[in-house]
Design a protein around this nucleic acid. Structure first.
Lengths: 348, 348
DNA sequence: TTAATTTGCGTAAACGTTTACGCAAAAGCT
DNA sequence: AGCTTTTGCGTAAACGTTTACGCAAATTAA
């Protein structure tokens, strides 16, 4: 009972290992009567194949890996759910690992997944993922990247960060703001930090507003979490010149903003407008419901896992690479005010 | 380069497989000079042991499993982080799986982890975990349960739910409330739903307030998420008698309450006090900062993983079971008002 | 010095599968 | 009927490790 292997089945059925394997894997070259007999014995004894043995022999397991940057960021929740759903439907296990913004950890985990012979990997990379491509190709492990820097020759799902940021900042400008700060996540060169900065600058330029270094502040570390937004905002407020609006890299940072502003006695949106990015589940429930740029996260996950399984099922590693780019959408709530009544407000 | 196994090392070093294995695993019965030579060859060629082969041979891998009920509930974030940290320190991989409130899925995943020969499992069980104990013991896989029903003979980490609920409701009573509703998660018999109900009733009893069926509402499904709290609150408000305070099973349900109350034009805390449970990261940032019962989640994770590794390292499956029970703590914010000025408010 | 122990290593089996190859019997074809 | 193909199955190697056992040489003990 504790251990019940194909040898046991073979012994009971009076056949060889090969025959049992054929029966269990729906392979041809076996008569229906023996097949049924074997399947019956297997199910009666609660046989379960040993995934390690199977993986060793096949060189591939029924697992797929998902590498996220921060599993505690609600941003990833819908993505994880979408991938999980499809993986379960396909009879695969999902291994979720958390690089925590560390590229060393990311590399370690990816290598570990490869050594564990996963059938495919979805990675939301910390830094440039191109360095993995060669190795993964050699090992014939399909991979899909989430939000990768452009230019990588691989399947990927991304979101138009420039457009998203452009839309958010343009909205602020339309509301009359001209002193708009951007709180970026620590490392500017990381995707999508750089793209959002680009969108921010582009929106300013379109309206003839000069870019002001003093309105550009970076969080200390790279985590993109509440506390960092809080610290960055305090720094921004002590910068001498005060903006009338803040565009934050993401919703968590925006939450930190709100906290700092409240502490300093500044009302949102009256004294300061705030816009975030991501539209995490909690954004509408905040002290000041957050205007933010919605990323269709669930869809991102759905597409990524779809692309992945297409590769897995076809076995083709060198077909044309598909780069899907989804459009974000501005969701207007309280935190940016609404002097402009033409804009559509989200119903509450 | 793609594949580099101990056979390759053995060939290069001119020794046998056994010797290579001894060197790589720091086993005795090998001279320092051969050991060093082998290690040098291994590292020079970037040797990585195949975890499937190793697992198959050893009957155990370097993975531990963590089964959570809802990976998207921020409640689990600190727990995952704590377990992840320790696992990494110990050189183990953490496999996080998500049962999504389904006991069928839970069972499937636990079996899958067992078949994958993990070294240990931490489970936040959907239902009574006692049925797993026999199998896990037979397979010699240590397990630690999070928030299990009492009475199970196993290592576990729990929180005093009765006390937590009692404290929360007592606080409401002290504030003058006598009509206090409880929004429970769907299935009452599930732990910790039942415990929190117990605490609620106990608090009422202590103050001589009769339990009113009309103030007890259950969410439709068992997910314990925002939407459910929202629906349950609407139902509660249409019940004829209106409470002056709501104690919600958890913070997400409480968020749903806030949404429903707002929609109905009821001000929190003036028209209705609301108290949650868990103190998720976002509780202080809500439209009305949420009074809630804090669970030391990170500590729960730390202790669970500590207990698990003690079992793994000692190999003792039948030592005394340890049941740790942590104390929750009431965190008072805006959502319950503060007529009673004796109470300590959390500084903002 | 001799006997007992320890050290250093090799051989081969084991972990539980899959799969290439081979071969007799059955089935299909002319 | 004789030839070719297909069917049904078995044998054994392979996947990449670990480990029980054995044995000669070196070391220690008496």
């Amino acid at each position: 009972m504790t251990k019940f292997t194909i040898s046991d089945i073979a012994r009971i059925a009076g056949v060889s290992l090969a025959t049992v394997s054929r029966a269990l894997n729906n392979k041809p070259r076996i008569s229906t009567v023996t097949r049924d007999k074997i399947l019956e014995i297997a199910s009666r004894n609660g046989y379960n194949p040993n995934p390690l043995a199977r993986g060793l022999s096949r060189g591939r397991t029924n697992n797929i890996g998902l590498v996220v940057i921060d599993i505690t960021n609600p941003f990833y929740s819908p993505i994880i759910q979408a991938v999980e759903k499809r993986a379960e439907e396909e009879g695969y296990n999902l291994l979720v690992v958390n690089s925590q913004h560390s590229s060393a950890r990311e590399e370690k985990y990816i290598n570990s997944l490869v050594q564990q012979r996963v059938s495919g990997i979805i990675v939301s990379p910390v830094q440039d993922p191109r360095k993995y491509l060669g190795m993964l190709k050699k090992r014939k492990i399909p991979v899909v990247f989430l939000y990768p820097p452009s230019g990588a020759k691989c399947d990927s799902v991304d979101v138009d960060n420039v457009k998203g940021a452009y839309g958010a900042v343009t909205h602020l400008i339309k509301l009359g703001h001209r002193q708009i700060a951007y709180i970026s996540r620590g490392l500017l060169h990381r995707h999508p930090s750089s793209k959002r900065l680009l969108g921010y600058k582009k929106a300013l330029r379109s309206s003839g507003i000069p870019f002001n270094e003093k309105f550009m502040v970076k969080t200390i570390t790279d985590q993109g979490r509440i506390e960092e937004g809080y610290q960055a905002t305090l720094k921004l407020l002590s910068n001498g010149v005060r903006p009338t609006a803040i565009f934050a890299f993401n919703d968590l940072i925006a939450m930190g903003c709100l906290k700092a502003l409240k502490e300093k006695g500044l009302k949102v949106p009256d004294d300061m407008a705030v816009v975030g990015f991501d539209d995490i589940e909690f954004a509408p429930f905040l002290e000041v419901p957050l205007t933010t740029v919605r990323i269709p996260e669930y869809e991102v996950g759905e597409i990524a896992v779809k692309l992945l399984f297409e590769r897995i099922d076809s076995g083709r590693m060198n077909g044309k690479y598909r780069k899907v780019c989804l459009s974000p959408e501005l969701v207007i709530r309280k935190s940016c005010g609404s002097k402009n009544s033409n804009l559509i407000q989200e119903k509450e």
